[in-house]
Simulated assay, not measured.
Amino acid sequence: MFAVDGSCSLMPISRTDLADYNYFLAIARHRNFRRAGLDLGVSASALSHALKGLETRLGIRLLNRTNRSVTLTAAGEELQAAISVPFDQIEQAVDRLNRFRDAPTGRIRINVPSDAASLLIGPVLPAFVARYPDVELDVAVSNHLVDVTDGGFDAGIRYGGTVPEDMIAQRLSAEIRWIVVGSVVYLERYRAPAHPDDLATHRCLRFRIGDDSVYRWEFERGDEEIAVAVPGSLTFDDSRAILEALIGGAGLMYAPEPLVAPLLASGAIRQVLDEWAASGPGFYAYYSSRRQLPTGLRLLIDLVRELKPLGL
């Protein structure tokens, strides 16, 4: 701090100040007290109280808060720019200490779609917990496309074709085959389609993807490629919900083959349009190129690549 006469008078920063600056950075990153609290493992009310205390001690308003939004004041933007790098460096230094421990520690947050949660991450979690019991893993399951950096996540997992170009990506699975299936009940009631164009006369279970658009079913046969905007009165944003409608005979489903493999094996559903099945990019982990890869995240990626629940 500078004294009135212009000389430099240093005021020590207390542990409370350091904690509150960290809270401020989380709030500034998320622009939401509840999400920042989830990131830090504290309540939104505790964050609000800490932020008010910091603003009182500084004598400056850092945030503009309403019932609907949280924005930074000019002073808040300047503070965020000034202290973000030092706090990132501290976090990275602490994480590097993991190599001196008998067992890694830390907390990582990842954002994954429901298919990846059940087919890719779920199968490796027992082994991950057994090997790294002191690493805390927070998995947010969402089929909406999110900015993992702004959302406070260490990484995301998505199908290869949807990974943001400015991110580092690591492949976690082999290509995935996409097929059309229907229940025995449905296919006894309606003639199975022989060509993708025949879907125009069928009931189809449609899927809304991460950007809120309805997915067009894609087909390949030799050099032919077709994308069909299928009809249907039922639209979902979660493939697990579609399965219930599929089994009940509500319509045909366009699905990643690993998701419906158990139902195919049991005979509850059948594949149609076999020769038109298409393959697409598998799952990739992606994370910011601007930050060091946390130890826990590296260990999780390595384990998925080791166990290969969806091939590689």
Rank of each mutant, 00 (worst) to 15 (best):
D5N: 12
R15L: 13
R15T: 09
D17G: 08
A19I: 10
F24R: 01
I27L: 15
S45W: 14
S45P: 06
R61V: 03
R61F: 02
T71N: 01
L72Y: 07
T73W: 01
E77T: 15
F87L: 07
F87M: 03
F87S: 00
F87K: 00
I90G: 04
A93P: 03
D95C: 01
D95L: 02
L97M: 11
A103L: 05
P104R: 07
I108S: 03
V112Y: 12
A117P: 01
L119Y: 02
L120F: 09
F128W: 08
F128I: 02
Y132F: 08
Y132H: 04
D134M: 07
V135Q: 01
E136Y: 04
L137K: 01
D138Y: 04
V139M: 09
S142G: 08
N143V: 04
L145R: 15
L145Y: 15
D154A: 09
D154T: 07
A155W: 02
I157L: 13
R158W: 04
V163L: 03
D166K: 08
A169Y: 02
L172N: 04
E175Q: 04
S183F: 11
V185C: 04
Y186P: 05
L187H: 06
Y190I: 12
H195P: 05
D198L: 08
D198R: 06
R208L: 06
R208I: 03
D211Q: 13
D211V: 07
S213Q: 14
Y215F: 08
A227R: 12
V228I: 13
A229F: 06
V230Y: 04
S233T: 15
L234I: 09
F236I: 03
D238K: 05
D238A: 08
S239P: 13
I242Q: 15
E244C: 12
I247P: 01
L252M: 01
Y254G: 02
A255Y: 06
P258E: 11
L259H: 06
Q271E: 15
E275I: 11
Y284E: 05
Y284D: 02
Y286I: 15
S289T: 11
R290C: 08
L293A: 05
L297I: 14
I301E: 06
L303C: 11
L303H: 09
K308V: 07
P309H: 13
